[in-house]
């Protein structure tokens, strides 16, 4: 999915009649109206409501109060945000370490099983995320399958895997690693493999070939995958709720709580806006950095 927009050759464009262009213009109208109505306007409402308050009965009202934001400017919330960020980054890092070798093995050595192998990766990701997370909870518990296996092998006794930051991160990786595998696989597939052969001839070291030839050639897929893993990981609240411990609360849990138990939609909106603002800054930095890298190629 992560690829630059394809460009038509310049000559084609000039030949197009104005009638034709108008037709495409009409096609654009309906989806545009739809997106503005349901997406852009919803984002605007979130921003507006983040300055709101609630009535005596808990109903949200628009307003011009910045109290919600000043309440968030607190050590507790800042720490929580940093924690969520670290979990999401760890998730991305682990996903790269897992996804790259898997995509590499399948793309370059999968032979005629390539499609079947990719399908085998995709299938589980469509079978309830929640049920798979719950299955992990049962497997990782102190008397669960993993621990009883370790106990039989004499490797440990009741290791607390569950309710730790690593369980949360593991759950996130499990949930989203496919979004890294697919783009990396696609860019490896698209790569001209004769480059690798040339690299091997030149450097006589597969490792060096990998770092100077293969890795740079798949940068686009890698960068896209990082984003596709990072975003859902940062906003997730299921992994922390099911696998987390007493100090693994993430920003997603925080927002969810305000909307469900808290009866405070304006505060929840402010949290959402704050998260989006921080995310926008991060994204701009990330895009600047990666597009410079991409240009160096």
């Amino acid at each position: 999915m992560a690829a630059e927009a394809p460009h038509a050759p310049p000559g084609v464009q000039r030949r197009r009649s104005s009638q034709h262009t108008r037709m495409w213009g009409y096609l654009l109208a309906l989806p545009t109206v739809w997106m503005v109505t349901f997406f852009i306007s919803s984002m605007v409402i979130v921003v507006l409501l983040s300055f709101g308050t609630t009535t005596r009965d808990g109903f949200p009202v628009f307003g011009t109060n910045s109290g919600n934001f000043s309440a968030l400017w607190d050590e507790v919330y800042l720490r929580l945000f940093v924690r969520s960020l670290l979990y999401a980054l760890a998730t991305v890092a682990l996903s790269v370490l897992i996804a790259y070798p898997v995509a590499y093995a399948i793309a370059l050595h999968g032979g005629r099983y390539k499609n079947a192998l990719i399908a085998a990766i995709v299938v589980p990701f469509f079978a309830s995320y929640l049920i798979r997370m719950y299955a992990w909870k049962a497997l990782l518990s102190d008397d669960g399958l993993l621990n009883s296996g370790l106990r039989k092998a004499g490797l440990g006794d009741g290791i607390s895997f569950l309710n730790t930051p690593w369980a949360v991160i593991g759950g996130l990786v499990y949930g989203f690693v496919v979004f890294m595998i697919l783009p990396v696989y696609a860019s490896l597939e698209r790569m001209d493999t004769s480059l690798i052969e040339a690299g091997n001839d030149l450097y006589h070291s597969p490792l060096r070939t990998f770092f100077t030839v293969t890795l740079p050639a798949t940068r686009a897929g890698l960068y896209g995958g990082m984003l596709l893993v990072f975003l859902p990981a940062l906003g997730d609240f299921v992994s922390a709720q099911l696998l987390g411990g007493s100090s693994t609360f993430m920003i997603g849990n925080l927002i969810q709580q305000q909307f469900v138990e808290g009866q405070n939609w304006p505060l929840g909106s402010a949290m959402t806006v704050a998260m989006m603002a921080a995310l926008t800054v991060l994204m701009v930095v990330y895009l600047r950095a990666t597009s410079t890298k991409a240009r160096e190629l």
């Binding site: 654009l28 989806p31 997406f39 919803s42 859902p232 906003g235 609240f237 959402t272």
Partner: peptide, 29 residues
């Protein structure tokens, strides 16, 4: 066209929880 293109791709780079909260607000509103 490019502006529209960018807008339609925004949901892909917005965490789902944000989209969810925003949709809730626009519908109830």
């Amino acid at each position: 066209g490019r502006v529209v293109g960018a807008i339609t791709l925004l949901p892909l780079v917005t965490p789902e929880i944000v989209t969810g909260v925003a949709a809730l607000l626009v519908f109830t509103g």
